[in-house]
Amino acid sequence: MYAPSFAAPTTVAEAVQLLANASGVAKVLAGGTDLLVQLRSGILKPDLIVDTKRIPELRTITSEGGGYRIGASVSGAEAGEHATLSRDWPGIVEAVELIGSTQIQGRASFVGNLCNASPAADSVPALIAAGATVVIAGPNGEREVPVEEVPTGPGSTSLAKGEMVVAVKLPPKPARTGDAYLRFIPRTEMDIAVVGAGVCVTLDEGGTCTAAKVSLGAVAPTVLVVPDAAAALIGSKLDDAALAALDAAARAACKPIDDKRGTIEYRTKVAGVLARRAAATAFKRAGA
């Protein structure tokens, strides 16, 4: 009968060694809000579970050169209560706080949300739009990659055996920059995104967009980066033409599936709608 091994190391080095030496399937347990559900439903039967919550550096948010380093096991609730994080990156904090319920928020983490590799992960489009990176520890040391390079398909990541994400890094926020994340669900909470849209924009003093990044969730096998959508915003003050171009670019990027949560047609249309609405909020936050 099934009986996995369980370890709760206190250092990253120890955790990496356990993961690297594991035979069979090894899974990292941060908040566990996805992993435990998969275990209970029998979808997943890992041979080893490594709990990372006892590694102190994975439990903290630190300011770093004007940006932030968020430990891999920091929960949504902890992110929401941080003194300055939601002031600087409101879109990111909103996104992580959309996951699950109040109870789930006490556990669910950015990194767990990312490494579960669901295309519908709420925090991922927001992180991508903001230009976040992750720090990955492994048998060969640490490396840093953009968030969008972690998921490779539903349930799969680019992490090699023995590797784990130890932190998310947010860059120093440029002046006149605003971010936003919106998702669509049929209800108001306790649901999984049918479509998600993250937008981050930087404006000049006159209110014209000089830089932008647009990311869409739940419309392709992985969270998408949509350069054409960003291009539609750059150089504009978010006039009707820019909004229409943004909407069209977002729709054009969608490669969704028909499933129980939404049809191809519906997801595609709503991707355009949410991109417009998220852009409007991002512009407002940037000071437009």
Partner: peptide, 28 residues
């Protein structure tokens, strides 16, 4: 508004749980 049984083409129920069988939540 939202409640329905979703079947695949083999007649298997695809949403046997409260995540995808959507009864209203309080905030709705």
């Amino acid at each position: 508004l939202n409640e329905e049984y979703i079947y695949d083409d083999q007649g298997r129920l695809e949403n046997p749980g409260f995540l995808d069988y959507r009864i209203p939540v309080a905030s709705d």
